[in-house]
């Protein structure tokens, strides 16, 4: 028996090996190389592109005094909380709850809600340019004008709100799928029993549905927060981080530092800090919620 288990462990490792190899080569190694790069003055162009040298902690020291970096962190925080934690979650939960009822056009509704998630980032970006940019001709402007409101220039006046709305739009489906899955694990007889006991729907939701769904919600929050930090193409197509850095998420800040200011070393230092922060959040989160995997 003992012998067999050891063989099994060896076999398991063999099964995991190809995945580990690909991850190591195409993700882990580049990530480590980024860490190394963050201690150099590597650049895409200029004298240090030919002879990069180690500069110690200079990139990091600069970063802590860089108001734009702090701004990017702040924008990202608001963006993640606004779109992933609140927007997608609330609308996703609402749709998931509404779809548990036997109502007509159920599949039509769920198709509509799934569509934004299927739209590739670039296409989604274009569609929202048409929605928001172009002054009075923008679709959203015409909608509010129909209600007699003078439309502002959306991306100039409420840039951060707009990208939160856009990202919420894109992610309702993911939340809905995961939360529907969570909802369907709640035993129907428990709900029925509560109903017979005369509990009101809101009470049922608060006392039964929500507590039973907590593990799902925790998992959803972790996954969506982590993937929202990495959102890039959607917002980049839409605003490129502007106006004046108002929508400059860290992912866009890194891109701008590395590829439009050509400072690879500094861009790498920002990546490292972002990775550290999200790891800290991730670990704290897992500890706090005591999630088991």
């Amino acid at each position: 028996m003992k012998h067999r288990r050891r063989t099994a462990a060896w076999q398991l490792n063999l099964l995991l090996f190809p995945s580990a190899l690909i991850l190591a080569l195409f993700i882990i190694y580049p990530a480590l190389y980024s860490v190394y790069m963050s201690f150099t003055n590597e650049a895409l162009v200029g004298p240090s592109a030919r002879n990069p040298s180690l500069v110690g902690f200079r990139n990091y020291l600069r970063l802590f005094g860089d108001a734009e970096f702090w701004n990017a962190l702040y924008v990202t925080l608001v963006f993640v909380v606004g779109s992933a934690i609140i927007g997608q979650f609330v609308l996703g939960l609402a749709s998931a709850l509404a779809l548990t009822r036997r109502i007509r056009f159920r599949s039509l509704f769920s198709v509509f809600i799934l569509l934004p998630n299927a739209a590739p980032e670039v296409v989604a970006g274009f569609m929202w340019i048409s929605m928001l940019a172009g002054g009075d001709n923008a679709t959203l402007s015409r909608i509010v004008m129909f209600f007699g409101i003078t439309p502002p220039d959306w991306l100039q006046v409420f840039p951060l709100w707009m990208i939160i709305i856009v990202n919420t739009w894109r992610g309702i489906a993911t939340a809905m799928i995961l939360l529907s899955a969570g909802l369907s694990t709640i035993p129907q007889d428990v709900l029925e029993a509560a109903r017979i006991d005369g509990a009101r729907p809101f009470q049922i939701f608060r006392r039964i549905t929500l507590p039973l769904m907590l593990p799902t919600i925790v998992l959803y929050m972790l996954i969506s927060a982590v993937s929202t930090i990495a959102v890039f193409g959607l917002i980049y197509t839409l605003t490129r981080g502007g106006p004046g850095g108002a929508t400059e998420l860290v992912s866009i800040y890194i891109y701008n530092q590395s590829f439009t200011a050509f400072q690879l070393g500094y861009g790498a230092a920002v990546s490292v800090i972002v990775l550290l922060i999200s790891m800290a959040i991730g670990i704290a989160y897992v500890r706090m919620m005591a999630v088991k995997v």
Binding site: V45, G46, A49, R50
Partner: peptide, 11 residues
């Protein structure tokens, strides 16, 4: 204005 830095990079 882009040329000098490209020269310095050895490109």
């Amino acid at each position: 204005q882009d040329v000098a830095d490209m020269v310095a990079s050895g490109y």
